[in-house]
Design a protein around this nucleic acid. Structure first.
Length: 276
DNA sequence: CTGCATGTTAGGTT
DNA sequence: CAACCTAACATGCA
């Protein structure tokens, strides 16, 4: 479930072991996972040094000494992690990147193949539509900007949170958790959120994401960080995946229910999160 | 066995 | 444009 906290955790775990390393042999086992030009993909990486590793929304960006930018998106089931070079290659491994003089290599696995890899020049990266279209980072957006964004849309708030143009990095889990925390019904039309509601949601989003990062993200099925470690935030869910269970809010006797909003399953407490 | 659900995004249609 | 729908895919579960 790589949403912002998981992607951030991967980036933080890889950084100290990968930044500054020179790439050795690159093996692209499933070329179609590369959505930029595949021609010369491996050749363009070999012998190049890895610079800064950054996260933007759910994207991982690796600046390279060649001026290129190596970009990963984990999709639904992607994993980017370090593994000893001599270890067997797991099923669904699409890329292996050796690092010179290092017993570890970078591996990208993705059974469902919704993930993607891009190798772009820095200019291309700056112009890449999907990156350019991303909304602001939740940690950087101001309440005023957030409120303005809500007012411009006549969609259910849940659908808007999932839309990466509005705010970058929210996915199904953290959207449900943030709406629960701010006591807002997922089907409430974004533009109808009151000032206090927008303010609560804004704070909830930032708080939930921060706590999830602190917990190393959520591991439901596939997710592990760059060193193979699981996250723990799934133990702190109030809404996501809890349909039929008691609402965990103190004093609430409600039950979490699951509905469809914007084509995505959505979990919430009808008692704590009424429509106005 | 079938049917259905699963964390995402791009690309199409309305 | 904004909003909505579906496809891309593998796997697990009822």
């Amino acid at each position: 479930m790589p949403e912002l906290p998981e992607v951030e955790t991967v980036v933080r775990s890889l950084r100290p072991l990968v930044e500054g390393k020179k790439l050795g042999k690159a093996r692209l086992l499933f070329p179609a996972i590369v959505r930029s030009g595949q021609k010369g993909f491996a050749r363009r990486l070999e012998g190049v040094r890895i610079g800064q590793i950054l996260r933007r929304g759910k994207y991982i960006l690796c600046r390279l000494s060649s001026g290129d930018c190596l970009i990963f998106h984990l999709g639904m089931t992607g994993r980017l992690f370090l593994e000893r070079t001599e270890r067997a290659t797991a099923k669904h491994t699409h890329l292996k990147l050796a690092m010179e003089g290092d017993p570890l290599e970078i591996r990208f696995e993705d059974p469902r193949r919704f993930g993607r890899i891009l190798l772009l020049t820095s200019d291309e990266a700056d112009r890449y539509p999907a990156l350019r279209a991303l909304g602001p980072e939740p940690s950087e957006v101001t309440l005023q900007q957030f409120r303005q964004a809500l007012l411009r849309h006549k969609r259910p708030i849940k659908a808007l949170l999932l839309d990466q143009h509005c705010i970058a990095g929210m996915g199904n889990i953290y959207s449900d958790e943030a709406l629960f925390h701010s006591r807002i019904h997922p089907r409430q039309i974004a533009a109808t959120l009151s000032g206090p509601q927008a303010s609560r949601l804004y704070r909830s989003i930032r708080k939930i994401l921060e706590k999830a990062i602190q917990a190393g993200g959520s591991s439901i099925r596939d997710y592990v960080d760059g060193l193979g470690r699981q996250g723990r935030f799934q133990l702190q869910y109030y809404a996501y995946g809890r349909s039929g269970q008691d609402c965990r809010r103190r004093g609430c006797r409600g039950n979490i229910v699951r509905i469809q909003v914007g084509g995505r399953s959505t979990h919430f407490c009808p008692v704590c999160q009424p429509l106005p």
